[in-house]
Design a protein around this nucleic acid. Structure first.
Lengths: 197, 197, 197, 197
DNA sequence: TATGAATGAGAGTTCATTCAT
DNA sequence: CATGAATGAACTCTCATTCAT
């Protein structure tokens, strides 16, 4: 079980890289196998089909995402440090997985059967992340750095804002400065409201 | 020139429907032709290639989007009515074009050559819509229903919020009630800020 | 019958030009119609099919060839002048119709049904030209410029030599000088024999 | 690498047969695959494209031609025997590859890019064969069976004569007798000159 | 277990031909 | 007569998947 696991992982990484670079349809099994340094047939030893491989890639990326974001945010104490860390990691991951993410969100429905599994995965992941964010906000409240009542809604909303900012950074290729500016405005706004800007 | 225009339009609609239902790669020319009730070759009488057809579909949908949203929002006077109308139409259109929209945003980069045209189209469209939204906000300010200074930033942000809400409605298949609730919270928040909720 | 004949002729010329430029398969009816300045359907008013059109082009070119070569050679008196004229015109025409000629000779068999007509045409044409050449040789003999007995064989052979030289000029893109040199050697040789060179 | 070479060769032969029978455009990859007894996709495992396959067929046939002609002519001693052998083999090969040969000579120009490679191949081949022929003539001279000075020219010319005779045999479907008669006259003539016939 | 040669369904695209106008 | 929009058969080529080794 030592080697298999390893090879499986190598293929998973290669697939993730290529789904990310070219999207689901334009990434071929041949390329993935080559990228992984294994034979084409070997891919089918570990994954039933291309759809299956894709599903596993999404699963893998989500797990990795959660692990990275948990590790980084929990290593900070202050509310704002945690928020910054969260945003930085989220943005970084979105950037790394941009095309694959886009794909998995938008054409999942056309995968028939497997799609529901993908959607379920994403929803479950979202809940976990929003929960994590809620913990950060609660921490801020406890530490007196923030005064919000509806933490559920706030967490959900802030997650969306952060996600959208990360997506836009990729889609419109925002410069780092532009990104930072938006980020600050965004933070101020979510806390104070538009009227105070 | 009497019929041609008509048939071109029929193919465009069929293509839009199928790109929407299955995404770019899974919607085949054969299917599009069948959906349009024409022969496969006829598609190529009106569009140079599948990529070209896709570009035209995006162009067409964006034009339609702008026309619909302008027409509806300009038929209202009060700020909040305009905002409601904007959100309703945007959400409706996103719902109708969900997959095609997703596709055009996420795999455009892999279309080589045509991709830039698609991205340009989308950016130009975004600017127009954000401008329209700024007009609505300005109207609210003029009417004393709203007091915001940085209209540019506010318009941009609100557009994203609305868009994200619309996307989520499709992705997570939110119920109408859940949607409405989020919408109201969103409106309140963008105006008052999280702290006031 | 005034207009039709004219339009038919225009299409024939256009088809000849394009079959010549691109060969049978790569010259499309659309292009031919465009080159002729008529509608695609019009081609089918005058010719049953593409194969039929091709057959008529070959017929037309052969007739033109015969007319040109007769006219030019009969305008000279001296044997060598006639020979030079013959070679010049033959070479010129081969050059003009290179691809179409090549095509009609080599893939005719794959045209099924029509092929036999084409081959018959070419054979009949060959006999006529060889006869014409025989006349020239006879003239030379009568004028005492040449002493050959087996005129039939000589004419046949010389025709082939001239034809091959013309073909090579096209295939290997011989310079005019190289061509002229070969031509002179050829003339000398056919008359005197290799041993005398 | 044991089997592959073999399958590649089978496909090459099948392609050669069909290009020969129907010409480049009318021989489809499906047919070639069927003739070779393999799947359509298999052809593309061994050859990048139809153009590539065609180029390889031409290369292969030229190599085979050279090998056969060298082997046969070098197995004779007497000048006339060598000449006879040369003519017989050349004629036989032309007959076998008639349409493909015709095609490669006449529509090569329309193959864009690959055409130059084909033309280069043919020219190189011609030089090799003419050299071989020159060797035969030299042999005849050395043995006192022939007295020619300009061997280069003679070899070139004789090659053309032989080629043309072979081509005519196919084009006009000459009977073996007619062919033999022409051949003898041709031999006599090239050596003695028309005037001596 | 690992491989890659073999496959064929299906993709996008072209074009000779037809026919309503 | 003249047209060109419409068609679909047939083409080249790709690629997910299988299976003998």
């Amino acid at each position: 079980m030592a080697r298999p696991k390893n090879k499986r992982h190598i293929i998973l990484k290669a697939a993730s890289t290529l789904f990310n670079q070219k999207g689901f349809h334009l990434a071929s099994i041949s390329e993935i196998a080559e990228e992984a340094g294994v034979g084409k047939g070997t891919v089918y030893e570990y994954f039933r089909s291309k759809d299956d491989l894709f599903l596993e890639v999404v699963t893998y990326n989500i797990q990795t995402y959660l692990e990275r974001i948990e590790k980084v945010t929990l290593s900070k104490d202050a509310f704002l440090d945690q928020m910054d860390a969260f945003m930085a990691v989220h943005s970084e991951i979105i950037s790394e997985n941009f095309k694959a993410t886009g794909h998995m969100l938008h054409t999942a429905a056309s995968m028939e059967g497997k799609s529901k599994a993908v959607i379920q995965l994403i929803l479950k992941n979202r809940h976990k992340v929003v929960d994590l964010l809620k913990g950060i906000l609660l921490n801020g409240k406890v530490r007196g750095e923030l005064s919000i009542d509806d933490l559920d809604f706030a967490a959900d909303l802030i997650y969306d804002m952060i996600h959208r900012l990360s997506i836009r950074r990729c889609q419109y290729q925002l410069s780092i400065d532009a990104c930072e500016l938006e980020r600050k405005k965004l933070m101020a706004l979510t806390i104070k409201g538009i009227e105070h800007i």
